[in-house]
C-alpha cells in the first residue's frame, strides 16, 4: 500500500521520511526544452503550478522524500537544461543516475520524436538496464494534443519503459508516476543485489585479468 500520497493525493514530506531513508536514488530528468521538467519538479515539491519558472541553465537539484509501501525513499532529482548545446553537460551525469525520467510534451510532436534521440543518449551514457520512466506532460492542454496516448504507449512497450501521461499544471499523475518510478527503482535495486549475491566473485576476477 502507498502510505503517503495514495491514489490522487500528492505525497507529502513527512519528517519520518526525511530522516534516514531506507533507499536513496538519483533520478535524472531529461527531455527537450520547454516540455515541463522544471514545472513537474515544482509541482512535486510545492504541489502547485508555477507559471513563472525560468529556463533551466545547466542543472538544478531537488530532494524529495517519499514513503511508499511502508519504506522511506529519498529521491535526489536532477533537473537538466533541454537545449541541445547543454547535452554534453547533462551527459556527464547519466552515469550517476539510478533512474531516468524522460519527458516529452503531448502538444509537441517534435519533442516526442526527440525521445528516440534521448533514448540513445541513455543507452550511451547510463548504466545498462537503468529504469526509465517515459512521461507525456501537459494533459491539461487536451485541445492542442499532437501525440496520441497510443503512440506513447507503443513507444514505451517497444523500449520497455514505464509510461504515464501527466500534467504539471493540474497535478494529474504527478505523484502517481513518481510512486511508480520508486517501485520500479526498488525492484531494479533488489535485482542488482540478488545478482551480486548469486555470483559473488567471478566477474571481479575476470575484470582483474582483463585489465
Amino acid at each position: 500500500a502507498v502510505t503517503a500520497g495514495g491514489a490522487g493525493g500528492a505525497p507529502r514530506d513527512s519528517p519520518e521520511a526525511s530522516l534516514d531513508p531506507d533507499h536513496l536514488y538519483n533520478v535524472l530528468f531529461i527531455g527537450d526544452s520547454h516540455v515541463g521538467k522544471t514545472s513537474f519538479l515544482y509541482r512535486l515539491h510545492a504541489d502547485t503550478f508555477n507559471p513563472h519558472l525560468t529556463a533551466t541553465v545547466g542543472l538544478d537539484y531537488q530532494v524529495k522524500n517519499l514513503v511508499v509501501d511502508n519504506k522511506r525513499f529519498a529521491l535526489r532529482l536532477w533537473d537538466s537544461a533541454g537545449q541541445e548545446r547543454y547535452h554534453s553537460i547533462t551527459k556527464q551525469f547519466f552515469r550517476k543516475a539510478d533512474g531516468v525520467v524522460l519527458m516529452y510534451d503531448i502538444t509537441s510532436e517534435y519533442s516526442f520524436s526527440d525521445v528516440q534521440y534521448w533514448l540513445s543518449c541513455i543507452q550511451e551514457g547510463a548504466e545498462d538496464g537503468v529504469p526509465i520512466l517515459l512521461l507525456g506532460n501537459k494533459t491539461d492542454c487536451a485541445a492542442e494534443r499532437q501525440v496520441p496516448v497510443k503512440e506513447g504507449e507503443r513507444l514505451a512497450k517497444e523500449h520497455q519503459l514505464m509510461f504515464y501521461e501527466c500534467s504539471a499544471a493540474s497535478g494529474h499523475n504527478v505523484s502517481e508516476s513518481m510512486v511508480g518510478l520508486v517501485r520500479l527503482l526498488k525492484v531494479h535495486e533488489d535485482k542488482l543485489k540478488n545478482k551480486a549475491e548469486e555470483v559473488p566473485k567471478p566477474p571481479q576476477k575476470k575484470k582483474g585479468c582483463c585489465w
Binding site: 526544452s33 520547454h34 507559471p51 513563472h52 519558472l53 525560468t54 529556463a55 537545449q83 541541445e84
Partner: peptide, 20 residues
C-alpha cells in the same frame, strides 16, 4: 535543425526571462 530549433527556442525563452 539545430538552428531552426534555436530560433524557436528564443521565442519560448523570452517569456521565461525574468517572468516576475
Amino acid at each position: 535543425a539545430d538552428r531552426e530549433a534555436s530560433l524557436e527556442l528564443i521565442k519560448l525563452d523570452i517569456s521565461r526571462t525574468f517572468p516576475n
